[in-house]
Nucleic acid binder design. Structure first.
Lengths: 192, 192
DNA sequence: TATAATATATAACAAGTGTTATATAATACA
DNA sequence: TGTATTATATAACACTTGTTATATATTATA
């Protein structure tokens, strides 16, 4: 019916992703994407109604990448896995991570609301957390989410010592988890 | 020598600050500032060489505002004060806060490097922290900085329950501080 | 092979940007 | 009072942006 397709939706999103991860989402332009693909802007407008539709597709891609990291880091302990995956995302895609934090978009909220019940359920099955009420588990989880977010922001912004390896990050994450759990345990026993 | 000055440097920065705190720093334009002041762009260019110089002045203003918050929250305990001031900044100037986090600029790094020695010194004088080595104090401080940053980001992004008041934030902050310190104490005694 | 369909390139448009040249008018001082 | 100074307004400039109209060229199919 027509000439062969040289520039697919996927290629366009690839190019947009690359720009987003180096210059930030706000610095994406149609012409930059075209230039990165070696095309004009015409193929972009054939695949996307307008720039909003393209950014939406890009957001889906970004969420997909973060989920892919979570799959790759999967060891069976969702608590550790999410920590490891988030830290990898913050380090390997720091510009995108900062963009997501900055945007205050619904992705973070949705992501949380989706993950939280799973994590609480996992905590209930964790022998280390036996005996805690749901309220207490929620407090522990909240503290750890806060800490992990702070750690991720620090990683993304290069605010940690340069010699900090991924293992060091996981160590401080689990060390603080221990702190929170141990203290909750003590607090609980003192009330008896 | 000439007509009365109707638009001062300060008014210009005021207008820029207002735009920055509602739309973000990247959305500042000369014409928007002028419109907010009810002027043309001419007074702006009389006071600032170009947009970069203006943004620089705006950054100084933002740092000033955050320092003003720190002064207002000053109760003598720098640890608490910084927490309270940071959380207020994250809540009352959430767009600016996210902008600063996003930008990965030197302000955060400089701010940290300036504050850290003061805090460590303060910790050395804190009776609650007696007996810890400098290394141990550094670990405690790092954990608390991470937690506070995470909490601030959550506040700025509205990721916490809506009924969370400032006092609740301070409570969870100091509760986690207790967790970290108590656990460090226990860890220390177990090593003996 | 001729034709219809269409992927792509080019160029233009309108809107918005930073910046500057020019004109205007208000003030202080001789 | 007249004049030099200068704060301000207006308008234009060059550039970038998203978007679209038009032209071109390539492919499958009749």
């Amino acid at each position: 019916m027509g000439p062969k397709i040289k520039f697919t939706k996927e290629q366009i999103i690839d190019a947009a992703f690359e720009i987003a991860n180096t210059e930030g989402i706000d610095n994406i332009t149609m012409r930059k994407i075209a230039e990165k693909m070696g095309s004009s802007v015409a193929p972009i407008y054939l695949n996307f109604k307008d720039v909003n539709e393209l950014i939406e597709a890009l957001m889906d891609r970004i969420v997909g990448v973060s989920q892919q990291l979570l799959i790759e880091e999967s060891t069976g302990n969702p608590f550790d896995d999410i920590g490891r995956a988030s830290l990898r995302f913050a380090r390997e895609y720091s510009v995108l991570f900062r963009n997501l934090v900055m945007k205050n978009n619904s992705y973070m909220k949705g992501y949380n609301e989706q993950m939280l019940p799973v994590l609480i359920q996992e905590m209930k099955n964790d022998p280390e957390l036996e005996g805690f009420t749901v309220d207490e588990l929620n407090t522990i989880l909240l503290k750890m989410r806060i800490f992990q977010l702070g750690l991720s922001v620090m990683v993304a912004n290069g605010l940690l010592p340069e010699d900090y390896k991924n293992q060091d990050l996981m160590d401080i994450l689990s060390s603080t988890a221990d702190d929170v759990i141990l203290s909750a345990r003590i607090r609980k026993s003192q009330l008896k």
